[in-house]
Amino acid sequence: MYFSPERNKRFAQRLFEHVRNGTTDQTADMLPYDLSMYADTEIAAAERTKIFEKLPMMALHRSQVPEPGDFVTVQLNRTEAIVSRQKDGSVKAMVNACRHRGATLVKQESGRRNLFVCPYHGWSYAGDGSLKAISFSETFGACRTDERRLVQLPVEERHGFVWIVEHPEGSIDVAAHLGPEMDTLLAEYGLERYHVWRSATFEFDQNWKIMLEGVLDGYHVSFVHGATIKPYFYLNMMAIEDFGHHHVTATPRRAIDRILDEPPGQSPLDEYAVFGNLVSPNATFVLHPHHIEHWTIYQNARDPGRCRAMLRILTPHKHLDERGEAIMEKNWNIASAAILNEDVPVGNSIQASANMPHAGPVLLGLNEVGNRVFHRAWRHYMQD
């Protein structure tokens, strides 16, 4: 069961009520906003400093660097980092650029090394980023190795993920960023027990916020996902636990009819609803019965009308049998069809409207509860 018994019962009570009455959670009022937030270059520049270089990012899952010496290279918003598991079990995050002339130090996506050697002039670094050797040092000249270690980024491992702050002079406190309610919820999930089954990176012709909002949106399923998702769910129906800047939402499957006559909480809801989670500022994941679909979305460094999205599928099993692999392939194909073939074209069209000078203001309705939390969080971060 994903949740604590208490949370499972709370959600069951609310979903049963919504299914019986054809209702959904709603906000107190509507929220008008301007489409320029998706196209304005000044807004995008402010996001880089106030959001992407300041706040903790769910950069990768711990299963991607399970053992000492394991490393991955990960692209943050504008910085590529090396994340390396240390001998004591901790992780280090370092800018993937040699401190001699700035050449990319590691070109592999992942591997196991105790030493990183620059391909340009052979400078070598230990797994913690310390400079170990300068090639032909007798002719290079005097150089303090402690001043030429790889640039370190604030990093913390929590709830099964490696979180990174992109600015080297920043600070990191994931629990404080999440707040006690979201921190407790992620602890309930036990995400540290999961493993990355597959990951992929995509480039889309839309602002990062449009992409994230599309994954959070439950209002559009009837119209965008008629062939892929619509038959399996109650439509325009959602219950939310709102944690201020983060949230978890529950959308009932049609299968919930089988347990409507039970006392709420008697059965785990894992197979009877899907649960969407917003981890502001730029991550969302959806809990399915057999897997977790995790998205992390970044800006395009040069164009506010584009974004880069990382999709990871997490499973509770490190190794899958033939049937398990078939289930995961099916789920990957469903996600691809729903997101890439259905959601993305609509999002691209929103970006096209945002690029117009006179498209006019738009509106979030009372039933768009998940998107409302994201907008609230975004406005808070941009005011800081």
Rank of each mutant, 00 (worst) to 15 (best):
I350A: 06
A187P: 00
E42Y: 13
E213M: 02
V196Y: 09
V83H: 06
T315K: 08
P316M: 13
S124M: 05
S267A: 07
N277T: 14
I172Y: 10
L269T: 03
Y125K: 08
R78M: 06
M94Q: 13
N207A: 02
V174M: 00
I134R: 15
S349A: 14
E156V: 04
P168A: 03
A377C: 07
F52G: 01
F3E: 06
G244W: 02
N96C: 11
A44I: 08
T104L: 04
P357C: 13
L153P: 09
R14Q: 14
D205L: 00
G69Y: 01
N367R: 13
N96Q: 11
H294E: 05
V117I: 15
Q26A: 15
D384K: 01
L150A: 03
E6N: 05
G69H: 02
M30Y: 11
D270E: 13
I51S: 07
G190Y: 08
H177F: 05
M328A: 05
Y120P: 15
G102A: 04
Q299T: 05
A103H: 04
F16Y: 14
Q13Y: 03
R323K: 14
V165Y: 09
Y232A: 07
E109D: 13
A39L: 10
Q86S: 04
E293I: 07
G324S: 04
L150H: 00
V215N: 05
Q108S: 12
A326T: 06
A239P: 00
S63W: 07
N8C: 09
E213L: 03
C307V: 01
G89S: 09
A97I: 00
K107D: 06
F204H: 14
I256W: 08
L278K: 05
A335P: 01
D146M: 10
M182S: 12
H225C: 01
A12D: 11
S349F: 11
N277C: 13
R85L: 05
S90P: 00
F223N: 03
T251W: 03
P119Q: 11
E53T: 14
Y189P: 02
H100V: 12
I229G: 00
L260K: 11
S280R: 07
G305S: 12
Q86Y: 04
D70I: 06
V362A: 02
W295I: 05
E157S: 08
W295V: 05
A352T: 14
A46E: 15
R306K: 15
H195G: 09
R144F: 02
G324M: 04
I82N: 07
A39V: 09
V224L: 14
H61R: 08
V215A: 09
